[in-house]
C-alpha cells in the first residue's frame, strides 16, 4: 500500500524562490475581467515545450486570480506584481497588496482531512471536502486550485511571511536548454 503523503502550503520569507534577480517583471491592475489576458501577456514568449497544452496558462491564471480577487479584492487601484523567468524551467513570483492568505493554516488542515478521506477511499467524506470554502468564497471560486497547484508546482510553492506573495517553480523532465 502506498503511504499517505500530504503536502502543505509553506511560509518561508527567506526562501530562494523569492530571489527575483534576473527575472522579468510586469504589473497589472486588479481587474477580474483581465485575469486570463494578463496571464497570456506573461506567457506570450514562453517556449512551447513548457506550455503542456494550456496547463501552464491555467495554473498561472489561478495564481493571478487569487492575487487579484482574494488579495486585492478586485480593487483596480491595487497592483498585482509578477516576476517571471521562463528559461530552463518556469518560475514566478506573484505579489498583491492585500492582507495575505490569512486562512493558510486552516487550508492546510482542510487539505489534510481531504486527502486522508481520499486515501481511505471514504468517497462520501471526500465529496463533502472536495471544495475549500473560505469566508469570502463565491461561485467563481472552485475551491480546488491550491490542490492542483501543490501537484503542478513540482519545484515548490512558498508564501512570504505576510502571505501576500507566492513563489512557484515547475521543472520539466525533458531538461534544460
Amino acid at each position: 500500500m502506498k503511504p499517505l503523503i500530504i503536502r502543505k502550503l509553506i511560509v518561508d520569507e527567506g526562501n530562494e524562490l523569492f530571489d527575483a534577480q534576473g527575472m522579468k517583471y510586469v504589473e497589472f491592475p486588479s481587474e477580474f475581467e483581465g485575469i486570463r489576458s494578463f496571464t497570456a501577456k506573461v506567457l506570450e514568449d514562453c517556449p512551447e515545450r513548457f506550455l503542456e497544452g494550456n496547463l501552464l496558462e491555467q495554473q498561472l491564471s489561478e495564481i493571478i486570480k487569487n492575487g487579484i480577487k482574494h488579495g486585492n479584492g478586485c480593487d483596480p487601484r491595487k497592483r498585482l506584481r509578477v516576476w517571471y523567468d521562463l528559461r530552463k524551467r518556469v518560475r514566478f513570483i506573484v505579489e498583491d497588496e492585500g492582507p495575505g492568505f490569512v486562512d493558510l493554516d486552516n487550508w492546510n488542515d482542510f487539505f489534510k482531512r481531504r486527502q486522508t478521506a481520499l486515501f481511505n477511499e471514504d468517497f462520501d467524506a471526500f465529496l463533502a471536502l472536495a471544495s475549500w470554502r473560505g469566508p469570502r468564497s463565491d461561485d467563481s471560486d472552485g475551491g480546488n486550485s491550491l490542490v492542483a497547484a501543490l501537484e503542478y508546482w513540482n519545484g515548490g510553492m512558498i508564501y512570504s511571511a505576510r502571505r501576500n506573495k507566492v513563489g512557484v517553480v515547475r521543472w520539466f523532465s525533458h531538461g534544460s536548454d
Binding site: N54, Q58, L127, A128, S131, D141, G142, G143
Partner: peptide, 20 residues
C-alpha cells in the same frame, strides 16, 4: 472542452454533490 480551470472543476464538484 478545450480549457478547464478551478472554477470549472468547482462546477463539476457542485453537480456531483447535487446529483448525489
Amino acid at each position: 472542452v478545450s480549457y478547464l480551470d478551478s472554477t470549472g472543476v468547482g462546477a463539476i464538484i457542485r453537480l456531483v454533490q447535487s446529483a448525489k
